[in-house]
Design a binder for these strands. Structure first.
Lengths: 340, 340
DNA sequence: CTGTTAGCGCGTTCAA
DNA sequence: TTGAACGCGCTAACAG
């Protein structure tokens, strides 16, 4: 039988209230009493029953998600998952609010971050641009006692407690390995299309990709990365222009969004055979895979990311450590053959 | 504010005890009273607070895992994950017992299944051979009121409530897509090595693989599948023999275990270039990937599978539906470039 | 058949 | 600085 506060109280020779004060690090207890209680906790191996505590406190976890607005399918999918989590709020004791900001706008993110009231918010998960001002705003919020987790794209220099997303360096390496093998010995150029180098996920993917090509497939030369701000029309124009200009392009790695534009720019399979790898399963990329326009799509499960963010933020609010393996977001690789 | 049993009692004009009886479908309540209470539940949108209920009941969930003994690395990894879950038992209110049985021995599984006491066991997760006797034993257990989930390999005809594992047909298709692309237009033969056709996961992988080769890569011809009972020495002998006999083999798909034997049988990369795809990241396969002996490894996260089995079995014991997307086990694809 | 009451493990008044 | 007592939402005796 697991020990309870009663057992601790008896063991330490004090009352329940005193045990509670010590356990919750509240003031008004003599140093010696604190030691006695802590010794009893150690001795009996006490672990607090979080659900009983939450019941007594009628606790809810007020959480805020910050993500970019706009037509980006992936971000809208992410938002849908957050809304699904809001549906479960009564059961999970969460109170989730969504704040959307213009994409690629660090100042807007900073504005939201600074407007948050630590008294009303327990944790924040955000999709951030990796810029110094956002990093600083995150640190300010953490200093004010709010736990912050990054979502999808990390903020490596900041005080965020956790990154809920894939290892984007490994994702880029994977793309490199796939494209290298799909080209299978042919020499030529590979066009790399990115959204914005202000995003650390795009940065990481680009460098992982370049590293693998350099070390394993030296016959493939990178063109780009071209920046498109994840805008479909820009992607279409950029890809069309590049394919016209460079006839030696035999593969494309699209590491950002705007996938619809990429599809529109792709020439007939018969005319010109290109190995194509893109990111995120959306309506568009799914169809492109099925039609054989794309060879592979690298995906991150945004449902998992959202649930993970909630678990991590809640655990942290309770001062617990989450199961780390459970929070590792996998790099999914989809071919037309294993599309879910 | 979420409604409580008190609110229901007031709304229905009855006492707490009666509400409790109705909510838990216990006998001794007049039909009319039941209806009144249920109407109040509907009207107020009541949902029971499971953690409060568990607190009051001091509930624990006694669970049994059945899996094959023996040297199979994957199964040992699975067992390690179950033991990790046992460590969390006090927090998760579980009481987990592991039963091991000789591999490929349906009778042994049936023996364990039939020996289980419904009064002492709440749910069972098992790695099963897909044979009629096991299926029947599962059905008998379900009839006696115990929830059963299959783990890793499914039992499609049975009354199991859930399958905790990957879509093995899709996994086989993925392997087919990868091998087809890695061979890249070359014609030749592909050796398929399996453990046992008594396992539905092996069956499914083999057929998914064959389907993709037939429809998308007609220049590749399948040799096998050869059955090895997942024994490394048998695998080594079978692969060596096949490679000697058939000089046109340009690829190998190993869809079962015994990966060490496969590695030992593989000729020098320089001598004979083979595209190799295997299953499950283990110490051996990891090294083979790193050295370039394997091109890809398809993996299932057994930690996720174990946690999922526990969640599903617990949820079912409480009469709840789990978040289905969370319980979908992903098909992981590892290249040397994205090895974790 | 139905209602009253005392906990489950913990947090939080209010007195002492 | 400490302790007693009540309540969180629910279940389980025990009466009636």
């Amino acid at each position: 039988m697991r020990p309870t506060v009663h057992d601790i109280a008896a063991e330490a020779g004090v009352s329940l209230a005193t045990v509670d004060r010590v356990l919750n690090a509240r003031p008004g207890v003599r140093r010696k009493t604190v030691d006695k209680v802590q010794a009893a906790v150690e001795r009996l191996g006490y672990v607090r029953d979080v659900s009983a505590a939450n019941l007594a406190k009628k606790r809810t976890y007020p959480l805020v998600f910050i993500l970019p607005e706009g037509p980006n399918s992936f971000m809208r999918g992410l938002e849908a998952e957050i809304r699904a989590a809001m549906q479960r709020s009564p059961v999970e004791r969460t109170a989730i609010r969504i704040e959307t900001v213009p994409p690629f706008d660090p100042a807007a993110i900073v504005g939201v971050l600074d407007s948050l009231d630590p008294a009303e918010v327990n944790g924040v998960a955000l999709v951030a641009t990796d810029t110094p001002d956002v990093s600083a705003a995150v640190d300010r919020l953490v200093d004010r006692g709010v736990h912050v987790a990054t979502l999808v794209s990390d903020l490596p220099g900041s005080q965020r407690i956790h990154f809920c997303g894939i290892d984007n360096l490994a994702a880029g390496r994977t793309a490199g390995g796939l494209i290298g093998r799909f080209c299978n010995g042919r020499a030529g150029k590979v066009l790399v299309v990115a959204g914005s180098m202000k995003l650390s996920d795009h940065m990481d993917r680009a460098s992982g990709f370049a590293a693998v090509l350099r070390s394993e497939f030296p016959d493939l030369e990178i063109v780009g990365p071209v920046e498109t701000n994840d805008d479909a029309d820009t992607v279409r124009q950029a890809v069309t222009a590049a394919l016209d200009a460079e006839t030696e392009i035999i593969a494309i790695y699209s590491l950002g969004a705007g996938t619809r534009g990429l599809i529109e720019a792709l020439p007939d399979r018969e005319q010109r055979k290109l190995a194509v790898v893109a990111h995120e399963v959306t309506e568009h990329s799914r169809q492109a895979l099925a039609e054989g326009l794309f060879d592979a799509v690298i995906n991150q499960d945004c449902g998992h990311e959202v649930r993970s963010a909630i678990r991590v933020l809640k655990a942290r609010a309770d001062g617990l450590m989450p199961i780390s393996a459970q929070e590792r977001i996998r790099i999914d690789i989809f071919l037309k053959d294993n599309l879910p």
